[in-house]
Design a protein around this nucleic acid. Structure first.
Lengths: 180, 180
DNA sequence: CAAAAATATGCAACTATTTGCACATGTCTT
DNA sequence: AAGACATGTGCAAATAGTTGCATATTTTTG
């Protein structure tokens, strides 16, 4: 799995608690990976056992204590090893296409409803991406931009291009099904 | 999960064995869902317990016996219920984007290698889709085409549009990283 | 003729993820 | 004052998926 590596990649930048990581996964990381807080706490424990991360307790006034995790040398080595290893392609899982195939069984109307629902969702997604693009990346990064900005920009572009492809497909699909 | 529903959707068309279903998943279904034979046999057993599928044994000369599964009324009802229920969006899982973020840690060269590897894979994928498009769908389905052809065509279009979006993104990403 | 591939099914162990619950405190809102 | 929301951590059970192994026969290929 890559959750371990997604977490380690955040710990490269700074030490973090499970709670901090959960927040990261809810905001920025959510664009390319997702995990619940239960999964994150569990995985931090597993990685601590493997000695990929080290742990220190931080007492806080008022709030509960934090358990702050940092990347160890072993963790950094594992992350470097994984980063250059060939990508393992995730198996496609597209519920909507199963449902589309069921148009014969349930009729085109309920399937068109589903497609229109997705259309709304994708529009919203594109709006979210566009907003971030304007806020943080008002001009396309150039050769003197820091590498981190470049990779963040490309992550955003990935989301935008995929969303646009889905939008185009949904328009095609809706048009063809409406003419049946 | 939707593996149950993907299997049921095939059993709508005809009764099939676990082996038959495995072959379906390796060829056509693979474009939108994937499953190993172990998983398919297991799930068929689970669905038999739920009475979503019924079972008959078929002796074969020479080859091992087959266990042929058919859709039951309960199975059909479940499939119809699921088909019209709102799509549950799959959480994004993109290893490549985690790796891209690691360009600072490991340098841009190994990441460019990964991106170029993906480029090759996507080119092949597009070639596969284009070949099928030519073989089976020489002309865009029109209003008098059977619904099943329309949905199959749209499944193919989904693959093509997604693959093209990824291709465009890879070109952008490679260009930007090369200029660093 | 021997080896490999295809046909056919499945268990067991492990890894990954989801869902539901639990607990403790602080601040902010109505 | 009551209730919601944020901070902070986690267990347990169930579901989903992967990996390795097992078995038996037939057909095809070199």
């Amino acid at each position: 799995m890559s959750l371990k590596h997604a977490i380690l990649s955040l710990l490269v930048e700074s030490e973090r608690s499970g709670y901090d990581l959960t927040k990261n996964f809810e905001s920025s990381v959510a664009f390319y990976w997702s995990a619940s807080h239960q999964q994150i706490y569990k995985t931090l424990g597993d990685m601590h056992d493997k000695n990929w991360v080290s742990l220190k307790h931080q007492a806080q006034s008022g709030k509960p204590d934090k358990k702050i995790y940092s990347l160890t040398d072993d963790g950094a080595a594992e992350l470097k090893r994984w980063a250059v290893e060939p990508v393992k392609q995730a198996a496609p899982k597209n519920q909507l296409l199963i449902k589309l195939m069921l148009a014969r069984l349930v009729g085109t109307e309920p399937i068109l409803e589903q497609l229109n629902g997705e259309l709304k969702r994708v529009y919203k997604e594109i709006a979210t991406y566009s907003k971030i693009e304007k806020q943080y990346f008002s001009s396309k990064p150039s050769h003197d931009t820091h590498l981190k900005n470049v990779t963040s920009y490309l992550t955003l572009r990935n989301g935008l291009l995929s969303a646009h492809a889905e939008l185009d497909w949904l328009h095609e699909a809706i048009e063809m099904l409406e003419n049946k």
